[in-house]
């Protein structure tokens, strides 16, 4: 609350100058900052620079600049929140399925099934918001193939899914990951 008008205006100028830059730079954070760091940084900005706090202390032009800078900072914060959301959605494929697939692949390279069923069947929460329902059918088949350790089968299903819904970035990322995993191979 001790921030002066001049400090707020200076901050606004700095943010506007960096508007095309990376989200972490806009929030004065390091590149590896977490979503929690971003939340703390944004709350700090809100307590000092929220346009509501400056309704009467600034000229219209100055208020416009502060409002714009605040909006840019909000956009940067949302980038962090959105990333946290998509890594969360990726989790089932990334962490558990790939590990299970790799383990199954190594344990029984030619066998159709692994001896132990994968524990904690991953439910890809959020996947259905990332693609059309037709694509989701293929995506689920890809998940099943992954659980069997059948990387090539999973790639085929993911390609089918992408053919159905070419706009899904989620599917493309998933495909890239499985392809990388296949290249690493046993």
């Amino acid at each position: 609350m001790s921030s002066t008008r001049a400090e707020v205006l200076l901050w606004a100028q700095r943010v506007i100058a960096r508007r095309a830059g990376a989200a972490h730079a806009i929030l004065d954070l390091k590149p590896d900052a977490s979503v929690e760091d971003a939340q703390d940084a944004f709350h700090k900005i809100a307590r000092i620079a929220h346009p509501d706090l400056h309704r009467n202390g600034l000229t219209p032009d100055e208020l416009d600049a502060v409002t714009s800078a605040y909006g840019i900072a909000a956009g940067a914060y949302q980038t962090f929140r959105g990333q946290a959301m998509s890594t969360q959605r990726m989790k089932p494929l990334k962490a558990e399925d790939l590990a299970a697939a790799a383990a199954a692949g190594r344990a029984a390279p030619s066998g159709p099934t692994s001896s132990t069923p994968p524990s904690g069947v991953p439910v890809s929460a959020g996947a259905n918001q990332q693609m059309s329902s037709r694509a989701l059918v293929y995506y689920r088949k890809a998940e099943i193939a992954l659980r069997r350790g059948d990387l090539k089968g999973a790639i085929l299903q993911l390609k089918m899914a992408i053919a159905t819904d070419p706009s899904s970035a989620f599917l493309r990322t998933a495909l890239a990951e499985v392809e990388t995993e296949l290249r690493k191979g046993p």
Partner: peptide
């Protein structure tokens, strides 16, 4: 015919994205 998302649902407001 695709929709390119500029502002996500549940983004904090006021917000500005270019």
């Amino acid at each position: 015919g695709y929709a390119e998302h500029l502002l996500d649902k549940n983004s904090p407001i006021p917000i500005e994205r270019t």
